[in-house]
Design a protein around this nucleic acid. Sequence first.
DNA 1: CTGTTAGCGCCTTCAC
DNA 2: GTGAAGGCGCTAACAG
Lengths: 329, 329
Amino acid sequence: MKKSITIKELSKLLDVSISTVSKALNDSHEISPATKKRIQDTAKLYNYKPNRIAVHLKSGKANTIGVVLPSIKNFFLARALRGIESVIAKTDYNIIISITNESYEKEVKSIQTLANGFVDAIIIAVSEETQIKQDFTHLKNVQDDVHLLMFDRVVQSIDCDKVVVDEYEAIFNAVKELQSKGRKNIALASTINNLSVGKLRTKGYLAAIEGIQESILIEGSEGAVENEVLSLIEAQKIDAIIALDEEASLASFRIGKKKEVLSNGKLSLIGYAGTKISEHLTPSLTTINQHGKRVGRTAAELLLKKLNKPLKDPELLTVNSSLYVRETS
Amino acid sequence: MKKSITIKELSKLLDVSISTVSKALNDSHEISPATKKRIQDTAKLYNYKPNRIAVHLKSGKANTIGVVLPSIKNFFLARALRGIESVIAKTDYNIIISITNESYEKEVKSIQTLANGFVDAIIIAVSEETQIKQDFTHLKNVQDDVHLLMFDRVVQSIDCDKVVVDEYEAIFNAVKELQSKGRKNIALASTINNLSVGKLRTKGYLAAIEGIQESILIEGSEGAVENEVLSLIEAQKIDAIIALDEEASLASFRIGKKKEVLSNGKLSLIGYAGTKISEHLTPSLTTINQHGKRVGRTAAELLLKKLNKPLKDPELLTVNSSLYVRETS
DNA sequence: CTGTTAGCGCCTTCAC
DNA sequence: GTGAAGGCGCTAACAG
C-alpha cells in the first residue's frame, strides 16, 4: 500500500508542470513528441494510473452502471444479471452489483451508495420488503441523480424505463394447457404473494379458471405450502398444481413425489425453477421459463439507448416466457 | 435528473458561507443551534445528499469493499458472498461486487475499476482463466492501492491475507471413508483440473489411494466426464466416484442413475454440489460441504481486522469442510 | 459562532 | 510547446 503515484508527483519528478504531464498522458497534440515520450515512459515506470475518483469528480461521469438485486440465489435474477453483463461488457461501462437480500433497509443503503456519484445509472429489481412496505421514496429520489431502470419486480407508480415478463399471460396459458389435458382442480401454490409478480401471476390463474372451477390457493411459507399440498392430495381435492416460485415448486414436488402421484398422472405440476434442477428431478419438472438472460439483455440495451438520448419518454418492454414441458405435466 | 443540490448552492440560498453549511450538516458544535436548524431544514427540503465521490476524494477513504468473484452460478461462491455480506453489513462499509465470469480480461478490468479509488479493500477468488494463464501482475499491482484478501481460489506467489478450505484433507478423508466401506476402485471425476483447488483435491485423492489401488482419473469437460464414466461403469472397472465439482458430480450422477448402479450399492458417489439440488436428487447425493458461508464470514472478519491495523503480517486461515452422507454412499 | 483558505487529483481554458 | 490558474464538491485547519 504505497499509494499510486499522482500527476503532481510525476510533474515534480520530471520537473515539468502538472498540466504538461496531464496533457502528455492524454496524448495531447500540444506536447512535443520528445517530452511526451519522456513523461509517458516514466509514468509507465512508476505504474501511473489515473485516479478514477478524481476523474469522475471532474468529469461528472462515472462510466459505471449499478445493478441492484434482491438476491442471487434466485436463478432468474442470476440469469438476468448475466444478460445485463453480456451487453454492458461490450461497452466501456463498468458494472457494479449490490445485493439487498430482499431487505428494504439494505436497498435504501445500496441506492444511496450508488446514486451519489458512484454510477450513471441504476438497474434494479425491487426487494420483497420494499414491495410489502410500499415505500418507494428512495427510488423516486434517486431519479434526480441517475437514470433508473426497473426490471421484473417493478413499481407501477414510478415513472421510469421498465422491462417485465408476461407474468399474467404465462400463467394463463399454462392453466389453459392443463385444462386442455383434462385437469379440473388446479391449485395455485406460492410463497411470493407479497411480490408484484406473484400477484400478477395469481391474477392470470384466476382469470383462466374463471367459470370453470373454484380457485384453490395455497399461499405462505415453504413449509406451509408443503402441509397444505399434502392435505389436498390426501383429500383428493386436486389434480394439478401451478407453483409460482422455486420454493413452492420444490415443496409441491417433494410432497407429490412422496405421495406417489407425480409419475402416474394423478397430479400434474408446473413450476418455476432453474433448468438444472428441473431436469435433474425424477420425474423432471415442467417449468415456465422466463428467459432471465434475455430479460437482462433487454434491460441493459434499453438503458444504453436511453443513456445516449435521455430525452425520450420512459418505455415498458415485455419479454415473453415459455413453457418447458417435461415429465410432470 | 435535475442533479442534486450542492453545499455551494445551499450556501448561496441561505446566504451563509460554504463551510458553515458543511459544518451544520455534519452537526458540528461550532454552529449555533438556530442556524444549524435552518440549514438542516432547507437541506432536507432540497433533498441534499453529500456527493460521495467528493467526500471520498477529500478523505481518501471509500468506505467500500470490493468483492471480485468468478461466477455466481457457483453455489459455493454464492454462499461465500452471503457470508461476506452478513459480516460487512454490520459495519459502515458498503459492498460492491464484480463478476469476472472466469475471464482473465474481465478480472483485470474489474480490479482496475475498483482499485483506483473506488474501494479500500478487495476480496477476490481468482478466475479460472487467470489460474491457467498464471499471470498475476494485476493482483500484485493492486496491492499498492488497496488491501487485498484472497479466498478459495488463491495465488500462492502473492503475499496477502488468504482464507482457504481444507481441500486436500477433505478429499483424503472422503476416500478413506469409501475405502473403509470396502470400495477398491475409486475414480476421481473433475472438470476443474485447471484450478488450484482442483489440483489440491486431486493430490488428496492420490495420497489416499497410494499403495492401495491404481489411480483412475476422469478429467475434462462435463460431456467428456459423462462418456468416460459410462465406459468405466460398463467395463465394471469402478465401484466408487469422487467428483470434484458440481458439473462432474451431476454428470457422474446422471450416468450412474441411467446405468442403475447408484441405488443398489454397485457404485458409491461423493460429490460437490449445493445442498438443495443434492437433497432433491433421487437417490440423494452425498457431498463434501465446504461451508461457503463460513468461508465468507471468515474472510470478511479477517479483512476488517486487517483494515483496522494494517501493520500485521498476512495470515492464512483454513475452514474445514465436512462430509454430508446421503444416499449415494 | 461564522467565514476564509487551501487542497484532495485531475482536466481545461487561457496566457505566455 | 509549456505553464499558471481555476474548479469539480467537500472538509478542515485557521482566522476573525
